[in-house]
């Protein structure tokens, strides 16, 4: 193992509960309840309920309260992007990760080494959150959800055009788009608005609270109507957003002959799109694709890269070819996200 990794491993360790910063006595995105947690963002496999103290952006804390019935730890501390706090012997700073509202990279400095735990991130523009900021560091810890060179997400507007073209082609049907409730739903709504789609959008009840929360933080989603309250005729020709599994549930029977769409990075691979039953796969992802991942390695200028959750081997292989020291890090509790 390289010198940077060796030095950092003395105070930043992989434990059964997840990544643990010994020098500051806190976990990062732990897989189970811990006394002190620093949370990168509000997705369920990163932010879990039941912690003692939680440090995160105010947006992430609000998301946790919304999802966990008010639970953002017994005590919580909000930290704005760019602010630094000291936890034990470690300085902790949050910087935008561009993944979802409130998502942050955690910049840790201790013993002369700087480590960036990037959580989940993407590099392309997202109208619902500030863009990823590359931070120079000694060790960069990256996700690998789309860590294969076949994942090349096309431009968002092209995918939104696909949806709108389909709507024109099937004016008597409704379009049901499966979206992850935190981040993807609001981003797809904003992308539609930016494409000039001003009509009301219909949403599944499970999306309501988070859409409202985005609104409270100044993301103007414009008019949203509950799909559940609408009658069949009213939904003809409309776009309905719902959690990804909704198309397979009896809930979907209220919809008039829906074209089933799915907005996810996995839609770029046909077999995966078919498995998910998508008739209209939309390749829209909140995770970096291969080109964004590899561009980031260059931007953060880190001599050492640790790769977690996803297809680690290909990214490690690539990073080593580019002259980095790279290691796969197996962190508990991560799921294939963005589905």
């Amino acid at each position: 193992m390289d010198a940077h990794s060796k030095a950092v491993q003395r105070w930043l360790k992989v434990t059964p509960a997840g990544l643990y910063c010994e020098a500051g006595d806190f976990h990062i995105d732990p897989a189970r309840a811990v006394p002190r947690a620093v949370i990168t963002h509000g997705h369920g496999d990163h932010a879990r309920p039941g912690h003692g103290a939680v440090l995160a952006t105010q947006e992430t804390l609000a998301i946790m309260r919304t999802r966990y019935d008010g639970d953002d730890g017994r005590s919580s501390q909000a930290l704005a992007y760019g602010e630094t706090v000291r936890l034990g012997d470690v300085s902790v700073e949050l910087r935008p990760a561009g993944h979802v509202l409130g998502s942050a990279q955690i910049v840790l400095a201790h013993g002369g080494k700087r480590v960036v735990v990037s959580g989940d991130y993407k590099r392309r523009r997202d109208p619902t959150c500030p863009p990823f900021e590359p931070v120079d560091c000694d060790v960069f810890i990256t996700e690998a959800t789309f860590g294969l060179p076949v994942f090349r997400h096309p431009p968002d507007d092209q995918e939104i055009d696909k949806l709108l073209a389909s709507q024109r082609l099937f004016p008597e049907r409704c379009h049901l788009v499966g979206v992850y409730g935190l981040g993807k739903a609001q981003r797809v709504i904003m992308l539609l608005r930016e494409a000039g789609y001003t009509a009301p959008l219909f949403i599944h009840g499970a999306l309501e609270k988070l859409c409202k929360l985005y609104g409270d933080f100044g993301v103007d989603l414009s008019e949203l109507l509950p799909a559940t309250a609408a009658d069949k005729a009213e939904l003809q020709g409309q776009i309905v957003l719902a959690p990804p599994g909704a198309a397979n549930q009896s809930w979907a029977r209220r919809l008039p002959d829906p074209v089933v769409g799915m907005a996810s990075g996995w839609m770029g691979v046909r077999a995966r799109a078919r498995q998910r039953g998508a008739e209209l796969p939309l390749i829209i992802s909140d995770h970096a694709d291969w080109d964004e991942l590899t561009q980031t390695f260059a931007d953060v200028a880190a001599p050492t890269i640790w790769v977690t959750h996803g297809r680690e081997e290909a990214l490690v292989h690539y990073a080593r070819q580019q002259g980095h020291d790279a290691w796969a890090l197996s962190v508990a509790g991560r799921e294939d996200e963005d589905e």
Binding site: L148, A271, Q321
Partner: peptide, 22 residues
Amino acid sequence: DPELFGWSYDFVGDLAETAALI
């Protein structure tokens, strides 16, 4: 890179599709 191609082909499962994407 042949290793990257191999992993990708394993994941995608279709030669033309792998080639188109990679």
